[in-house]
Simulated scan of single mutants.
Amino acid sequence: MKNKKIQIYTDMIRNVGLKATPQRISVLKVLSEMSSHPSADMLMDALGDQGYVMSVGTIYNILETFSEKGLILKLKDNHEVMRFDANTKFHVHIYNNEDNGICDFFDPELEVLLANYFKNKLPEEVLLNRMEVSIFA
């Protein structure tokens, strides 16, 4: 099972044209297992807790590359700190002002509703690649 999961991350990285280095695989694995939308520093701590050691610069470079390739999402929290999400499928981000947390809300019906709405409203030359919805509470 463990090797099968690693292979999934390896394939994801290769499918966007990147070399699947051990560092990239470990960053994607740990980020994918987190639901807290960590900052790079939070991710570095989580990587360290699991025995992966790399510099913060390496982590930032990997996160930036993954974001550019569409493997992850970049979000800013309520304090303008960059946070990251490995779930790139449609979902709503709910930002909590009290604890600066970001949580996910999944509603496939909302995705269909919004996609249909925009299909009829956007100019013809605009192709909808991805939708993001954020709620601030």
Results as ranks from 00 to 15, higher is better:
residue 61 N to I: 04
residue 3 N to K: 11
residue 114 L to P: 04
residue 66 F to T: 03
residue 82 M to W: 11
residue 103 C to K: 15
residue 113 L to C: 13
residue 127 L to Y: 13
residue 121 K to W: 07
residue 120 N to S: 11
residue 29 K to E: 08
residue 10 T to Y: 10
residue 134 S to M: 05
residue 124 E to V: 10
residue 35 S to C: 10
residue 1 M to T: 13
residue 34 M to H: 09
residue 13 I to R: 02
residue 42 M to N: 09
residue 109 E to V: 14
residue 43 L to W: 03
residue 69 K to C: 02
residue 78 N to H: 04
residue 83 R to M: 03
residue 122 L to P: 06
residue 59 I to G: 01
residue 54 M to S: 11
residue 22 P to I: 08
residue 131 M to S: 03
residue 127 L to F: 14
residue 91 H to D: 09
residue 134 S to D: 09
residue 81 V to P: 01
residue 131 M to A: 02
residue 107 D to W: 09
residue 40 A to K: 06
residue 76 K to G: 05
residue 80 E to V: 12
residue 81 V to Q: 10
residue 104 D to S: 14
residue 96 N to W: 02
residue 108 P to E: 09
residue 58 T to D: 05
residue 103 C to L: 14
residue 98 E to R: 15
residue 74 K to H: 12
residue 104 D to P: 00
residue 12 M to P: 00
residue 81 V to F: 00
residue 46 A to Y: 10
residue 46 A to N: 12
residue 77 D to R: 01
residue 21 T to F: 08
residue 63 L to F: 02
residue 20 A to S: 05
residue 95 Y to N: 10
residue 99 D to E: 04
residue 60 Y to E: 04
residue 57 G to I: 12
residue 30 V to E: 01
residue 134 S to T: 14
residue 60 Y to W: 05
residue 98 E to Q: 15
residue 99 D to P: 01
residue 124 E to D: 13
residue 45 D to F: 11
residue 14 R to E: 08
residue 67 S to K: 08
residue 94 I to T: 10
residue 72 I to F: 01
residue 73 L to W: 14
residue 130 R to N: 07
residue 49 D to V: 04
residue 131 M to Y: 01
residue 52 Y to V: 15
residue 39 S to T: 15
residue 101 G to Q: 15
residue 104 D to R: 13
residue 114 L to N: 01
residue 124 E to W: 03
residue 38 P to H: 05
residue 42 M to P: 05
residue 70 G to N: 00
residue 110 L to C: 02
residue 118 F to D: 04
residue 66 F to Y: 08
residue 33 E to I: 03
residue 60 Y to S: 10
residue 49 D to S: 13
residue 23 Q to V: 06
residue 24 R to G: 05
residue 43 L to G: 03
residue 127 L to K: 15
residue 15 N to P: 02
residue 1 M to L: 12
residue 37 H to K: 14
residue 111 E to K: 07
residue 106 F to D: 11
residue 36 S to R: 08
residue 137 A to P: 15
residue 70 G to M: 02
residue 59 I to Y: 03
residue 87 N to D: 15
residue 61 N to R: 08
residue 45 D to Y: 12
residue 15 N to G: 02
residue 68 E to A: 09
residue 24 R to P: 04
residue 103 C to P: 06
residue 13 I to N: 00
residue 124 E to A: 15
residue 21 T to I: 09
residue 74 K to N: 06
residue 2 K to C: 04
residue 49 D to H: 14
residue 101 G to I: 01
residue 1 M to Q: 14
residue 1 M to R: 11
residue 103 C to N: 13
residue 71 L to H: 09
residue 123 P to G: 09
residue 107 D to C: 11
residue 86 A to H: 01
residue 73 L to F: 12
residue 87 N to S: 07
residue 15 N to A: 10
residue 19 K to M: 11
residue 49 D to R: 12
residue 114 L to T: 05
residue 36 S to K: 07
residue 3 N to E: 14
residue 126 V to R: 08
residue 2 K to F: 07
residue 26 S to Y: 06
residue 113 L to E: 11
residue 83 R to F: 04
